[in-house]
Nucleic acid binder design. Structure first.
Length: 598
RNA sequence: GGACCUGUAGCUUAAUGGAUAGAGCAUCUGACUACGGAUCAGAAGGUUGGGGGUUCGAGUCUCUCCAGGUUCACCA
């Protein structure tokens, strides 16, 4: 069915033709939701139309308003304020709308067909030399939520993770473990695998710094010292051994990586994120060389005297970019060219989204340009979802120095806080231990996820571990609570054998709180579509916050089960039930679960 | 230095070029013996970093300056 905004625009266009004998495309007519502090549901902005009517805004608004009122039965009245024509819709419109959607558990979703667009979302993509931290949390939550949202918006989504499991960094951890590990394992120490490996990475850096200091005191420059430090040379030797498939090195490498994966799995599980497919750099790092060679042959790329291969991007306002070293080995960019190509062959995707921090803006700009240079038109389908860094009160996180908010620690802290608050409120006293823990977990993760996802992805966000997470106000638990309370009313209704009703109530007179809610709900499909288009879970978060606030206003003044008029009572119960389902579904898009009770 | 991003109440943040810039936290004042008070009603808090331009209309577009961040490796 045609959206009411479009209908208003279309009829307004007819009004202009009839009243002023002039044409104006419906697309050019601004119809928007009326501001909260004004009377009305939808507003036609008439400022721009005065140029056609050649009359004052007020007069133009009144004339068009009269026309709309007689030609659109849904419009019960209108009001003109300056250049704004505020239209009031009849209750019947909202009640009919509700009757059409009341039973829909996935309201607003577009179905995914076999020929729906295919979207690959790459996110998480960790290094295996250190555990996940707060920055990864934002990445993971964004990647997962965006995937769910575009899936609900009618796309076939494939979530992938490209694990960086090779390179000098993992060799550093391996070397430190050999030197100072004395055979320690996660099993022998009880330390989570990724944490254990991370500790050796930090240990390497510590020893490395000591060696640099010593060399500088012996008269070397800092740059020389960094290169000459024996421990760094050892690490580089190890990388060489790895590349030459030295059995002992490979064995240690796969052993330590397996520790890390076990650790990551636990963290992913706690965060509730998942992937359809994993890629490993150890298997992809040689990809892309063929593409570069081909580009060299057809003149898209060029070779310098020392044998290195470059792309010239100066005409695009960028620099020259190295693609193959003089010794013929490839760099990170080369591999990304290769994996993009591989994935296009594999999925024939319509869109490929990389969820990667904005510190790599340059990298992805170059990636697209080079692919285009190489003649791949599908480079336009690549999109870098560039999100802002997470900052702490004392500045940026530095993982080598251990100055990070660890993902697991943060989650534990959140659960701990949830426990304390629950205990203070005394809400869960009669719950079985298991349910109590589950509820605290869901509240904790709900708070964390909502807090991070409600911020526009592009923006740098501030995170104060002590103060940031609240359970009141614009928070996950606030939304969860509203839903849980409705569920409680539903249980009560069953006890009282009250049944929710819809479908027979077209003549119902609505309370303003009810029509406000219905108006909000009516907007949801547009919100979801926009969130999918702009890849912003924040839009979904904000929508549900507004909805929940409005529901709480309603709940405060409109009795549900105590309402004497049974038709009203049944309608309110049905509306509440719908909203609970709606919240549950929408929060699900952000990976937030609703407890049964809380 | 070049390129890109960000600047909104004390703090965390909203606002497809539209009306008096909207919330939450913190602060202050209130709510029937609760269909669940992790709620609700209210007060106070702003020159949207500064200045010019475009427009009937600018937090939003444009130019410039200021502040902060990221990036420009034969690292990933």
């Amino acid at each position: 069915m045609e959206r009411i905004e479009n209908r208003i625009a279309r009829i307004t266009s007819l009004a202009i033709r009839e009243l002023y004998n002039s044409g104006e495309n419906p697309e050019n007519i601004q119809v928007k939701s009326t501001r909260k502090d004004q009377k009305g549901d939808y507003t036609v902005v008439t400022f721009p139309l005065t140029r056609i009517s050649r009359k004052k805004p007020e007069e133009t608004g009144t004339e068009i308003g009269n026309y709309l009122k007689t030609h659109l039965p849904e419009i019960s009245d209108f009001e003109v304020v300056k250049g704004f024509l505020n239209l009031i819709l009849a209750d019947k419109f909202w009640v009919d709308f509700f009757n059409g959607i009341a039973g829909d558990l996935e309201y607003g979703h577009k179905p995914v067909h076999f020929d729906s667009p295919v979207v690959v979302v790459e996110y998480s993509s960790p290094n295996t030399n250190k555990p996940l931290h707060l920055g990864h949390i934002r990445n993971n939550l964004l990647g997962f939520a965006v995937s769910k949202i575009i899936s609900a918006a009618g796309n076939h989504v494939i979530m992938v993770n490209l694990v960086n499991d090779r390179g000098i960094h993992i060799c550093k951890s391996m070397l430190a473990w050999q030197k100072w590990g004395y055979g320690i394992t996660p099993e022998s120490s009880g330390i989570k695998g990724d944490k254990l490996v991370g500790e050796f990475y930090i240990r390497f850096d510590k020893e490395y710094k000591i060696e640099i200091k010593e060399l500088i005191s012996k008269g070397l420059s800092e740059e020389q010292a960094k290169v000459e430090a024996p421990i760094m040379k050892e690490a580089q030797d190890m990388l060489l051994k790895w590349e030459n498939s030295d059995p002992e090195t490979i064995e240690l490498w796969s052993r330590m990586n397996s520790w890390v994966y076990e650790g990551f799995d636990k963290t992913y599980q706690q965060l509730g994120v998942s992937f359809d497919k994993f890629y490993h750099e150890s298997e992809t790092y040689k990809l892309g060389k063929d593409l570069v060679t081909a580009g060299l042959d057809n003149g898209a790329l060029f070779r310098k005297k020392d044998g290195s291969v470059w792309a010239d991007l100066t005409s695009d306002g960028l620099d020259q970019k190295l693609l193959l070293r003089s010794d013929g080995t490839s760099v990170y960019m080369t591999q990304d060219l290769g994996t993009a190509h591989q994935r296009f062959e594999e999925f024939q995707f319509d869109r490929h989204i990389y969820v990667v921090g904005n510190e790599q803006d340059y990298h992805f700009k170059v990636l697209k340009l080079v692919l285009k240079k190489l003649g791949f038109d599908w480079a336009d389908k690549l999109y870098h979802l560039s999100y802002g860094m997470v900052e702490l009160p004392h500045g940026r996180m530095k993982s080598r120095e251990g100055a990070v908010v660890d993902a697991d620690d943060l989650i534990l802290e959140m659960i701990d806080t949830a426990r304390k608050v629950s205990a203070e409120l005394g809400k869960l006293e009669d719950f079985p231990v298991e349910e109590k823990e589950l509820v605290n977990y869901r509240i904790a993760l709900g708070a964390l996820k909502y807090y991070i996802l409600k911020v526009d992805p592009q923006k740098t966000m501030m995170f104060n571990p002590e103060e940031s997470i609240d359970f009141n106000g614009n928070t996950g638990p606030f939304i969860q609570y509203t839903c849980v309370r409705i569920r409680s009313v539903e249980r009560k209704a069953i006890e009282m054998s009250v049944k929710s009703g819809f479908g027979l109530t077209s003549d119902l007179e609505l309370d303003p709180r009810e029509s406000t809610l219905l108006k909000r709900i009516y907007q949801y499909p547009d919100i979801l579509e926009e969130a999918g288009r702009s890849l912003s879970p924040a839009l979904v978060a904000n929508y549900f916050y507004e909805l929940v606030k409005e529901y709480n206003h309603f709940y405060q003044v409109c009795p549900i089960l105590k309402e004497p008029d049974t038709e009203k009572r049944d309608f309110r119960l049905a509306l509440s039930k719908f909203i609970a389902n709606h919240i549950q579904d929408g929060m699900g898009l952000m990976g937030i679960e609703i407890p049964e009770r809380m």
